[in-house]
Design a protein around this nucleic acid. Structure first.
Lengths: 159, 159
DNA sequence: GACAACCTACTCGGATAAGCTTTGTCCGAGTCTGATTGG
DNA sequence: CCAATCAGACTCGGACAAAGCTTATCCGAGTAGGTTGTC
């Protein structure tokens, strides 16, 4: 099982936007240069965040991306769901109802699959933990220099 | 993010072996027929469970697979780790240390990446939940007919 | 000098190709079972 | 009738291809700002 890199990219970009305070939008080109990422592909991921309502995009020559709401209101679950999709990692395909073992009335399978239930329980714990942490929490746990560092970087690449 | 089907297959096969009581080994062919799965590929997955010490394989004409230890001692975490691999889903590639933003002394990055820490916390919750449930728990939560159903199936395909 | 129209450059956004993991398949080595043959 | 031997078939196990998803790239539509010409 493997999570796409887009999640890491998206989170770091959101953090950068949060540290900058959200006054003026930041373009994909600047964000890509900041982390040495492929620009076009990063843009694709940021679009996903826009569709999810986490970022807002403004076109034009001074356009770019901004946080749609304050960092306290953006959970890690939001970002992960926006980029990785809403589907569960474990997908029950109901193999218990196929093959030799399933020559039984459908009524027998009214009870949900125990395997799926157990896996879902673990995944809910994962989601709950993700939903319990916001961007602001990560910012608070970061060294205090981080905000200043982001701002000085932005002024350097803007000037 | 997507978990391979092998996890579902492995869990259902382990449950079948558990319900049968583990007297005589069950071949891949029978297990594959039970759930209508590709036989050779299922075998590949069961081999992974053998390497992890969850199953034992006996070759020969009456060979097959058996649980290596009682169901109370096999957690979902064991099965998932055996099939999906031991790596974390989220892999921090330290993009914060690359690009424009990282023209700083390495000393600045001694503190672990906050994003990675947060993601790891969620993943630990997931793993903890998986490790807290055993095959025996799933068996206990299943309808009591399940054991009898497995045995009758085994006698039908063996006879 | 001020205003308005135009043009340019830069932005997002979606449609279009490579790389890699997952899935699927095949064949070979090993082993137990059962029959066969000799005593 | 019994035991040893031999052939056979079935098992696991790892090496070998195809498919799907992730990653990466390109080009078009749209917008803001700067420029220029006119009043």
């Amino acid at each position: 099982m493997r999570m796409g890199e887009g999640v890491e990219w998206g989170l770091h970009c959101c953090l950068t936007l949060a540290w900058l305070g959200g006054q003026d939008p930041v373009s994909t080109a600047k964000l890509a240069a900041r982390f040495d990422l492929p620009q076009a592909y990063l843009n694709k991921r940021l679009q996903a965040l826009v569709r999810a309502g986490i970022l807002t995009s403004t076109p034009g020559v001074r356009g770019g991306f901004r946080l749609a709401r304050p960092p306290e209101k953006i959970t890690l679950m939001d970002v992960v769901a926006a980029i990785e999709g809403p589907d569960d990692a474990f997908r029950c395909t109901e193999i218990r109802q196929r093959g030799d073992g399933a020559e039984l009335p459908v009524r027998e399978f009214r009870a949900p699959c125990g395997v799926a239930t157990a896996m879902r329980r673990a995944e809910l714990a994962w989601r709950r933990e993700l939903a319990g942490q916001t961007l602001a929490d990560i910012m608070a746990a970061s060294p205090p220099v981080a905000a200043e560092r982001a701002r000085s970087w932005y002024e350097r690449v803007s000037g």
